[in-house]
C-alpha cells in the first residue's frame, strides 16, 4: 500500500467520522496546558501539545471508582457494572500508551483485575509524533519517538501534514473510511528529535544500579526539598497504588466500596494500628517511588515502569527531578 497522508485542516473531519461510531478521547487545550477529554466538537482536538496534566490512566483506573456495591438490608455484595464503550484514543504520544501497557502488566499478571481489564476491551489507539520539551526523557527509558508498539494507527507529522500508517486490521478499517480526507504521502522518514532531558545511561542494567544505592546521599538530599504532597504519584501514568473505603448512601440501604488513587509519598500509606509506619522517614518514601519506577517492578520484557513522560518533574512544586536523582546514582 502506498503511503498516505492527511492535511492538518482535515483532522477535524477525520475525528467527526470516528465520532459517529466511537467515543473519542483526545487532547484539548486547557489554559496553557492540555487535558485528555471526551470530544464533543472535533475542532477542539489538538495534535501539537507537549503533555496533558493527567495521563490516560484516568480512563482505566479512575481517580475514584466503585469496585463493590452492596445492599445493607439484603446483605448482598454485587459487582458494579463496568462499561467498556468502544473508544478511540486519538492523538496519543507513545510514552502515554507505554504507560497503559505497563498498567496492563500490573493488572493482568498475578491475580487478574477485571475491574481494570474490562475497560481495556474495545480500545483503539491512534498515535502521533511529538517534539520533546525540557522534561520528556522517554528515549532514555527505551521509548524513542518512533516506537509504535500498541498503536492501531500512527500519525507522523511533517510540513503541515501527518503521514497515516495503519498498523492493525482495526486501524486499516478506519483508514479506509477516511479515504476522502487522504492524499498521497511523499514523506517516508522519521522526524529527527532531540531530548534535552536525559538519563546518563540507557535503561539496560538500570535495575542493578539500585543494588548498592540504598544508603546513597541523594535520597536524603532530595527528601529535604520534598513536601510529601503526592502530586508525582497522581500525575504518573504508571503509579497505580490505591486506597479503599466504604460509603453508604445516606438514608438508603445502598453502599459502595471504592478505590482511590493513593500516594506512597504520604506517611499514612504504610501506617498500621499502633502507629507503626514502615517507611517512616521521608527519604524512605522518596527512595521507594524511584525504586518502584526503575527496579522493583519491571514488565515481562524487563522494561522499567517509568516511561519518561516528565510529568512528575513538570508538576513538582519542589522542583524535584527524577532524572537528576537517577543521574546522581548513575
Amino acid at each position: 500500500m502506498s503511503s498516505k497522508a492527511i492535511a492538518r485542516e482535515k483532522i477535524p473531519d477525520a475525528v467527526s467520522l470516528l465520532k459517529a461510531k466511537y467515543r473519542v478521547i483526545a487532547p484539548v487545550p486547557k489554559g496553557k496546558t492540555f487535558v485528555f477529554k471526551k470530544i464533543g466538537n472535533p475542532q477542539e482536538v489538538v495534535l501539537d501539545y507537549n503533555t496533558t496534566i493527567l495521563p490516560l490512566k484516568k480512563f482505566f483506573l479512575p481517580p475514584d471508582e466503585v469496585i463493590v456495591k452492596y445492599n445493607l438490608k439484603k446483605r448482598e455484595y454485587q459487582e458494579p457494572e463496568i462499561e467498556s464503550e468502544p473508544t478511540v484514543f486519538f492523538g496519543i504520544h507513545n510514552y502515554e500508551l507505554q504507560g497503559i501497557l505497563r498498567l496492563d502488566y500490573a493488572f493482568g499478571t498475578g491475580v487478574k483485575d477485571a475491574t481494570y481489564l474490562k475497560k481495556r476491551e474495545n480500545n483503539i489507539f491512534i498515535g502521533v509524533t511529538y517534539t520533546p520539551d525540557d522534561y520528556h526523557f522517554a528515549e532514555s527509558v527505551g521509548i524513542p519517538t518512533d516506537l509504535k508498539e500498541g498503536f492501531d494507527i500512527f500519525l507522523t507529522k511533517y510540513n503541515g501534514h501527518y503521514r497515516v500508517e495503519a498498523l492493525t486490521d482495526k486501524g486499516k478499517n478506519i483508514v479506509s473510511q477516511w479515504s476522502e480526507f487522504l492524499e498521497d504521502c511523499s514523506y517516508d522518514g522519521d522526524p529527527v528529535v532531540h531530548f534535552k532531558n536525559k538519563l546518563k545511561q540507557s535503561v539496560a542494567g538500570i535495575r542493578e544500579i539500585f543494588h548498592g544505592a540504598y544508603n546513597h546521599p541523594v535520597w536524603k538530599e532530595t527528601s529535604k526539598k520534598c513536601y510529601s504532597c503526592g502530586t508525582c504519584n497522581l500525575v504518573c501514568p504508571t503509579c497505580y497504588c490505591f486506597d479503599v473505603s466504604d460509603e453508604v448512601v445516606l438514608g438508603t440501604d445502598q453502599g459502595a466500596r471504592s478505590r482511590r488513587w493513593d500516594s506512597c509519598q504520604i506517611l499514612g500509606f504504610t501506617e498500621v494500628a499502633g502507629g507503626e509506619a514502615f517507611r517512616e522517614k521521608r527519604y524512605d518514601r522518596v527512595r521507594h517511588r524511584m525504586s518502584r519506577k526503575f527496579a522493583y517492578i519491571m514488565d515481562d520484557r524487563d522494561r522499567p515502569f517509568c516511561v519518561g513522560c516528565g510529568r512528575c518533574i513538570r508538576q513538582c512544586t519542589a522542583d524535584i527531578s527524577i532524572t537528576d536523582v537517577m543521574n546522581a546514582l548513575l
Binding site: 490505591f242 479503599v244 500509606f269 527496579a295 517492578i297
Partner: peptide, 16 residues
C-alpha cells in the same frame, strides 16, 4: 498495611 490482598494496591510492599 493491606488494602486489597491481591497484589495491586501497593500498601503491603516491603521493598519489591
Amino acid at each position: 498495611k493491606m488494602k486489597c490482598g491481591v497484589g495491586k494496591c501497593g500498601h503491603c510492599q516491603i521493598n519489591n
